[in-house]
Simulated assay, not measured.
Amino acid sequence: MMDCHRKHGKSVFPVFYKVLFADVVRQRGNFEEALWKHGKQCSSEEVLEWREALSSVAWIKGWMSHTIANGHEGELVKTMVAKVLSELKTSWIERHPMFIRSVYLCFSEKKRRQTKWQVFLTFRGPDTRRGFAAYLYISLVAAKIKVFSNYDPSLIGTYVGCEIQNAIDHCKISIPILSENYASSHYCLDELAQMVECKRTKGQKILPIFYKVKPSNVRDVSHRFGEDMLLHKELVNGVTYERWERALREVGSSKGWVSEKIANGHEGVLVKRVVKEVLRLLNNPQTRDIH
Rank of each mutant, 00 (worst) to 15 (best):
E75K: 14
L192M: 10
I145R: 06
I209V: 15
S102L: 14
D23W: 03
V251W: 00
D228A: 11
V275W: 01
T115M: 10
L48K: 15
V251S: 02
G252P: 08
E250Y: 10
K110H: 11
W117V: 03
V278R: 06
K116E: 15
L85Q: 13
L230H: 11
V239T: 14
V239L: 10
E277M: 04
H72D: 14
L76P: 03
N264W: 02
A183G: 10
L282P: 06
V236F: 15
E52L: 11
H66W: 07
R224T: 08
V278H: 07
S174F: 11
V147H: 08
D3L: 04
Y182C: 02
K276I: 05
E260Y: 01
T115Y: 14
C171W: 00
L235C: 11
M2P: 00
Q286R: 12
H266E: 06
S222N: 10
A22I: 14
S44N: 12
R273N: 00
S43Y: 03
W257H: 02
K202C: 10
R95D: 15
Y159F: 04
T67E: 14
F210T: 03
L178D: 01
S216V: 09
G268D: 02
I290R: 04
V236R: 14
L235K: 15
T240F: 03
S222T: 13
K214H: 14
T201W: 02
E94H: 12
R26T: 12
M229T: 06
R219V: 08
W244Y: 04
L76A: 02
E32T: 05
K214W: 09
V160S: 05
S65W: 00
D220V: 07
P208S: 06
H186I: 07
K116I: 11
M2A: 06
T115Q: 12
G238P: 05
G131A: 03
W257Q: 00
W257R: 01
